[in-house]
Design a protein around this nucleic acid. Structure first.
Lengths: 219, 219
DNA sequence: ACAAAACCGTTGTTTTTACAACAGAAAGAA
DNA sequence: TTCTTTCTGTTGTAAAAACAACGGTTTTGT
C-alpha cells in the first residue's frame, strides 16, 4: 500500500494532506487494496456499496449494457480519481451501473462511515478530507453536466465537436490524445461506431480536424 | 424570510436542524431572498457564482440554448431543492448553463464561504449542514447519472420508456404526473417535439401507455 | 514468427429522426 | 365574450443514423 502514497498525495481526496498523515489515515479509514485483471468487474449494477474508492493503477469504465448489447460508457476513471462516492450517503440505494477494469487495475477501498464520522484519534486532517470529498464530488458533478452537454447535441457531428472541443480546452492544446478507442468513444457518446467513424472521416476531409488513432488536432 | 422556515426545514440541506437553529443560521450564512418573475434568469451561462441557493417557491429550469435555438433542459429544480452547489468549490469556473424561472419564483441565497468555513459562533449545527451538503450533492449526482441513462438510449421510444419508468418508480405508482409539457419534455430528452409526440401516440395506440396532458399511466 | 483477435474505415440499405407546416383544442388576456 | 396565444397531435418529406457486412491494418498472444 505504501507504494501508492505518492499517488494518493496527488488526488483530490487527499489534497493538502502530508505523507505521514496519509499513512496514518490509511489505517484510520481501514484502507484495503484489491487488484483487478482487464475485463474484471469492480462493482456490478444493483450492488449496494459502502466504500469510497480511489484508483491507484490502471483504468476503469463506469458503464451499462442493455438488453440488446448496446453499451453506454457513463464515465472513465483515471489514476488518482475517486468513484463510488455518490453512494456514500445512507439510503442512496444500489449502484446503477457496472464498474469495469479496462486495464489491469489496483483499487483502494475506504470505509465510508469512517470518513464521514469524525474520529477521535490522531486524524487531524479528517475535516480536510471531508471538505476535499465535497470538492471532488462537485467536480464530478460539473463533469457530468458537461457530458450531458455533449449528449444533448442532436447530431453525431455536433456531439463529436462538443466532446473534442472540451478535450482540447481541458488539455490546453489543439492537439491532444483521448482516452478512448473508436468503439469506446461511440459508446461514450451513445452513437453507432461506424456512423461515427464515417462522420470523423468526413470532418477530416472537410479540413475541420486531423487525427491519427487516439490523437486529434482541431483546425 | 421567516415564512420560508417551514420549507427550509424540509430541505436536504437543513435536515435534522431545528427551527430556531435554522433561524440563527440564516443570519450566520447571510441568507438573502430574491424573487423572479416567470421567464427571468437567476443565473446566466458564464457567470461566476459564489452562492448556494435554495428554491423557496416556484420552479426553475437549468438549461442552455445553442446557436440554432435548440434548447436543452439539463435539470428541473423544484421547491426545497438546492442549486449552484457544484460551483461552491474554489476554482470551479463559470456556470455552464442558464438558470431560468419557469414560474414566478423565490430563491434564497447563502454565502458559500460561510458554509464551508466553520464559524466560531452559535452554529453548532454547522457540521451537520456540511454533511447534508455532501449528501445532497451526492443525490444530485445520482440523478444526473440517471438522466445520462435516459439520454444514452438510442431511440426516442427507448428514451421515453426509460424516463417514464423512472418517474413511475420514483412516484411509486403506475400513474403519475410529470413536471413538463411536451416541448419541455422533448427539450429534456433532447429530441424533436413533434417526433416525440408522434412516438407517444404510437405507444398509446399499441396499448403501452395512456396519458392525458401531463398525467401518464404505464400498462 | 505466425495465427488469432481487435480495430478502423468504407459502403449500401433500412429505419428513424428532424424539420416544416398545419389544424383543432385549450388556456389566457382584453 | 371574443380574440390571441400556447399547446398538442398529425402528416409528408428530407436528412441522418443505425445496421450489416467486408477488407485491410494493427495488435496481441503463443
Amino acid at each position: 500500500m505504501k507504494k501508492y502514497i505518492s499517488i494518493l498525495k496527488r488526488t483530490r481526496l487527499f489534497a493538502g494532506v502530508g505523507d505521514d498523515e496519509i499513512l496514518s489515515m490509511l489505517g484510520c479509514l481501514q484502507a484495503k487494496l484489491r487488484t483487478y485483471k482487464k475485463g474484471e468487474y469492480v462493482f456490478r449494477q444493483g450492488e449496494h456499496i459502502d466504500n469510497i474508492t480511489v484508483l491507484a493503477e490502471g483504468k476503469l469504465h463506469i458503464q451499462s449494457d442493455d438488453y440488446w448489447g448496446n453499451r453506454s460508457i457513463i464515465n472513465m476513471i483515471g489514476i488518482g480519481e475517486m468513484f463510488g462516492e455518490a453512494y456514500a450517503a445512507p439510503g442512496s440505494g444500489a449502484i446503477l451501473n457496472d464498474v469495469v477494469a479496462v486495464e489491469d487495475s489496483s483499487v483502494i477501498f475506504f470505509d465510508v462511515r469512517r470518513i464521514l464520522t469524525v474520529c477521535s484519534s490522531a486524524c487531524k486532517f479528517h475535516s480536510t478530507v471531508v471538505q476535499n470529498l465535497f470538492f471532488a464530488i462537485s467536480e464530478k458533478n460539473r463533469k457530468l453536466v458537461q457530458k450531458l452537454g455533449h449528449m444533448s447535441k442532436r447530431s453525431t457531428r455536433e456531439k463529436l465537436i462538443s466532446y473534442l472541443s472540451e478535450q482540447a480546452k481541458y488539455q490546453n492544446s489543439a492537439t491532444f490524445t483521448i482516452p478512448f478507442n473508436r468503439q469506446q468513444l461511440a459508446d461514450f457518446l451513445s452513437v453507432d461506431r461506424s456512423a461515427m467513424s464515417n462522420e470523423l472521416c468526413k470532418m477530416r476531409d472537410e479540413g475541420l480536424i486531423t487525427f491519427d488513432k487516439n490523437r486529434f488536432t482541431l483546425n
